[in-house]
Design a protein around this nucleic acid. Sequence first.
DNA 1: CGACCATAGTTGACACTATCAATCAAAAGG
DNA 2: CCTTTTGATTGATAGTGTCAACTATGGTCG
Lengths: 145, 145
Amino acid sequence: MSTPALSDTLHRLTHAYKQRLRIGIRNAGIDLPITHVRALKGIARNPEATAGSIAARMQRDKAQITRVLKELEEGGLITRQAHPADRRSQLLRPSRKGDILIAKLQAVEQEAIDTMTRQLKPGELQRFIALANLMADSVTPSEGD
Amino acid sequence: MSTPALSDTLHRLTHAYKQRLRIGIRNAGIDLPITHVRALKGIARNPEATAGSIAARMQRDKAQITRVLKELEEGGLITRQAHPADRRSQLLRPSRKGDILIAKLQAVEQEAIDTMTRQLKPGELQRFIALANLMADSVTPSEGD
DNA sequence: CGACCATAGTTGACACTATCAATCAAAAGG
DNA sequence: CCTTTTGATTGATAGTGTCAACTATGGTCG
């Protein structure tokens, strides 16, 4: 096997992870697509979050982000405040409800990761993540997270 | 954070790879979505390919596979022959045109992989693939779909 | 100031991917 | 036969990704 297995492997892995995560999310009684979850977490991690910064961080189209944010806001999970220095922009913050959800989500995500990495020896996950980031950077260079 | 980086890492990686691959495919003048490419390759690799076996191999919904196969056939890339032992099923084989396309695709894919793994030391890719498979197996053990 | 371009965000259109339920025909097994 | 499985298909619907056009504001510079 030279290398072409990578394609299938990647698909298989992400599909497996997404599926597992989605099930966990649903079991927790949360009705939110994965992209929304990721955006919400991104907002929570970044006190200066704007639509643009979230799009950049997630490396997704800003159009997509706009729609996600709209739904997060409609769901009462985030709030938008006027940006103090730029009236085109808005600062995004999780609402109280959003914070509570994030806590739940983190538990679910950790559970999914635990399931997936249960066959890995200590350190192998970190090694895997490092390699994955190295590869992703080779395609779309990113500044530090 | 302890490990939740995995989620973002996986998204970033597959997104980067898909994007890179899609660009390569388009540059090669091929007009075919990635799922179709993967299905076509799967068929080529398996002389006994049926819709079901491809679905199982790719761990995708049969419905999705059916549609992909339909389009591959419409594009003249594969042919369907009656299955000798089961009249519900059909054996799938790449057409001559399909074979030619596959050769092109493999070059494109190898190029994408080369780009992505250029920062990896020898053996690290194999290590990565092994870890990824281990993780995927932990979520969808042997039997899936 | 006013012309001009860049940026933040929004919207519309569309293609691709995933999931689920229902259906049909053929196979398998009493 | 009749019932249950299985391979494949279809329809419906949701989620995701990409591109282009657009609005409004900001920044620059003559």
